[in-house]
Amino acid sequence: MNIFRLAGDMTHLISVLVLLLKIYATKSCSGISLKTQELYAMVFLARYLDLFSDFISLYNTVMKLVFIGSSLAIVWCMRYHRVVRRSYDRELDTFRYWILVGACFTLALVLHEKFSFQEVFWAFSIYLEAVAILPQLVLLQRSGNVDNLTGQYVFFLGAYRAFYILNWIYRYLTEPRFTRWISCVSGLVQTALYADFFYYYFISWKNNAKLQLPA
């Protein structure tokens, strides 16, 4: 564990807490893409298949349970909670993400570290996470105004993978046999997808103005 990875995990945890806060405090999920939340639930379920077979550390196991539990809870809330579900932007959140799921799974069948059930699903989860934010970014552009908590949620969600890139550089420099090309390339693509959001987020923060994404 290094400081970059810890910072990345904590930033990821903060993004989940900000989202839970927004939904719980405002009893509203307006501006949040259910599609992205469902993709993240798939990412965690596919990635943490080794939850019960490989014990890495208490921290690792607890964080996996937190990410799986929170993503499923958010999807449940947005679908079935009688108050929250009313504020879901159903007509704006129309990204056909099964195309993404199919493409990522196909890629995982071709490109993986080892051709085993667990490794193919692990690679699938890495590719899927790289594109999971797309429905959310599309929804933000369609809905125009971005409330503070939603903006912060997306910001922290993007920042965590940027910390992971620093973690991979650090591990590459300090660990002799460290090579994680699948994670690194996907992580770079994932962070690049946030580039324009980060740009407009920074501008709005500098001008102390509301976050506006160009339609």
Binding site: R5, R47, D50, D54, N60, M63, W122, N167, R180
Partner: peptide
Amino acid sequence: RNEDLSHDEL
């Protein structure tokens, strides 16, 4: 356990 394949990152 095959060390370098067990994914120690989240």
